[in-house]
Design a protein around this nucleic acid. Structure first.
Lengths: 225, 225
DNA sequence: GCATATTTGTCCGTATGTATA
DNA sequence: CTATACATACGGACAAATATG
């Protein structure tokens, strides 16, 4: 079969394939721990094994896939230690980004927009949408640091977290009052009280970590029953 | 602890090849901006093009190589904005890691060891060694956060900086009093004054950024003469 | 502006080693 | 212990994009 015609998006096949696999991951059609068999997946995606292997390298580096030498690549199943590590990194960069943010930073608009959208969706009962807007909120906070590298790192952390939450059927944000908390953080930022906003974030992380760990424990208990 | 842990022979050929290319980069045998032609480099390294392309994916994600679609991969030549971005990220994670560090953290031993070694090497006039120990010092500071992800991110940032400094023949650390400053930071950490240590770091970064930018300007002037 | 050479992007076939049923 | 499935790695092929004269 001849190579495909050039893609209008400009991305090459390797990256488009990585994207397709990412979709399979967040859809839950690929379960954590599951092996990705090269010939089968290559056939399913309609790409060659070489192309697929290059895509694997990308996703491995993003922490979504895991290679066990001479055994193959598997969907990464983050354990508790890794989830805590992700939260530790988030805490560090989000808090410092907020603390260092200039008052009247133009990026504040994106922060505010995410919260207001979340409020809207909460009224409509769209909890999935609320969760998405919460992610956007935190990404916007990181955006206050004006650092492309930090933004990219954060996007990767969020992808890893999404993967970790695929296994947790009960969304941890359902009974969480974080939307009101986010509103308060935005207010503090608007007043230029960056230190207080960072402290509020710190409290959020402490509680959020606990909530997530509890959800994991519940998940384990359910599975072993 | 090592910046890039993939040294042993147990790694697969793709990773060993990536390592070989990293060596070519820090040796300066591959210059920033230079194109890496697949067939030529594959022959030189004694690997197939497919293997080489997988290695490229790794190094691209580390920020060392850059892909221009349909044109090939090139050694990344970081501009001023990118170097500033790296310093911005370093400032955020190092300061927060120090601020959050527990007093008597076991990782302090590594911090102290790096400084003492630097003092030693400075007396011997080994400025290259002093520079290396300085890098180890900062990596040890990040180690205080006990976060594998943060440590890996930092290793990547250091690799990018090394690459950026290949072009700068005058090492920016030659007349820099950072060893004494590092001693002071260690003393503060030993006393449990984490906040003051973080503030000292902040001052270091502000000055360091200026020094590096000046070196870049000198480099530009030299090259255009 | 055109023809040509170079290089990438992608695929296939195949050989060898390694882990597992 | 021996099949078997799979990963790992190589080399060759060719179309399409790009650079070159």
């Amino acid at each position: 079969m001849s190579p495909r015609p050039a893609d209008p998006a400009g991305a090459d096949l390797v990256e488009r394939t990585a994207l397709a696999i990412r979709d399979l991951l967040i859809d839950g059609r690929l379960q954590p721990g599951q092996q990705l068999v090269e010939p089968a997946l290559a056939a399913e995606l309609g790409v060659s094994r070489n192309t697929l292997r290059e895509s694997f390298r990308i996703l491995m580096h993003e922490g979504l896939l895991l290679r066990r030498p001479n055994r193959g690549v598997f969907v990464h199943a983050p354990d508790v230690a890794e989830i805590l590590d992700i939260y530790r990194v988030r805490r560090i960069i989000e808090e410092q980004a907020v603390r260092d943010a200039a008052p009247k930073h133009p990026g504040l608009a994106a922060v505010r927009a995410a919260v207001e959208q979340a409020v809207h969706l909460r009224e409509a009962g769209d909890w999935d949408g609320v969760g998405t807007e919460n992610m956007r909120f935190h990404a916007a906070l990181v955006g206050l640091a004006d650092s492309p590298r930090l933004a990219e790192l954060f996007a990767r952390l969020q992808a890893e977290l999404r993967l970790a939450f695929v296994t947790l059927d009960s969304p941890e944000y359902l009974h969480d009052p974080f939307v009101d908390e986010n509103l308060r953080i935005v207010a503090l930022l608007d007043e230029g009280r960056m230190g207080d906003a960072a402290d509020a974030l710190d409290a959020y992380f402490t509680r959020s970590e606990r909530t997530v760990l509890a959800a994991i424990e519940r998940g384990r208990a359910t599975r072993s029953r």
